[in-house]
C-alpha cells in the first residue's frame, strides 16, 4: 500500500501515517497478521525521520492495531473488522460534530452547510 504524506497540512506527519495505516487496516487492505515495513524502511520510503515512523507505530500499537514481535518487526493484529469500523465511524462523527458546531457558530444556516457539503462531495 502507498502512504502519501502531505507537507502542507495541519496534521503532523506521524499522524498522517497513523491515519492512513489505520484506514488500510479497517478497509482490509492490510490483513490481520500481515507484516509491516520496519521503522527504518518506512522512513526510507517516505523520506522522513525514524522518530516519525517510530512514533506512528507506537501510536498504532497503543491503539491495539499492530503489535511488535521482538527481533522480527511489526505485524497487524487480529481484529474485529466491524468493531474497528464502528470505532472509526464514531471518531469521524465526533470530528464532524466539531466542524458543524464551528459552522453554526460562524452563523451558517442548515441550508448553507448542506450546500457546502454537496459541493465538496461533488468535487470529491
Amino acid at each position: 500500500m502507498k502512504i502519501i504524506i502531505k507537507t502542507q497540512g495541519t496534521l503532523a506527519i506521524y499522524e498522517q501515517i497513523v491515519n492512513q495505516l489505520k484506514n488500510a487496516i479497517v478497509t482490509g487492505e492490510l490483513k490481520a497478521g500481515e507484516a509491516l515495513p520496519s521503522i527504518r524502511m518506512l522512513a526510507n520510503d517516505l523520506q522522513v525521520s525514524v522518530i516519525t515512523t517510530k512514533r506512528a507505530y507506537e501510536e498504532l500499537e497503543k491503539e491495539g492495531l499492530i503489535r511488535s514481535v521482538a527481533g522480527k518487526g511489526f505485524y497487524v493484529c487480529e481484529y474485529n473488522k466491524d468493531y474497528l469500523k464502528e470505532k472509526q465511524l464514531m471518531m469521524l462523527e465526533e470530528r464532524l460534530q466539531e466542524v458543524l458546531s464551528e459552522c453554526k457558530g460562524a452563523g451558517l444556516s442548515k441550508e448553507d452547510i448542506l450546500e457546502m457539503v454537496q459541493t465538496l462531495l461533488g468535487e470529491g
Binding site: 504524506i5 503532523a12 506527519i13 506521524y14 522522513v48 525521520s49 522518530i51 516519525t52 512514533r55
Partner: peptide, 15 residues
C-alpha cells in the same frame, strides 16, 4: 542561540 540550547526535541514531522 548565543551558546545556549533554546530548543531540543524530537521531530515528528510537525509544522
Amino acid at each position: 542561540e548565543q551558546g545556549k540550547i533554546s530548543f531540543y526535541g524530537e521531530n515528528f514531522g510537525g509544522e
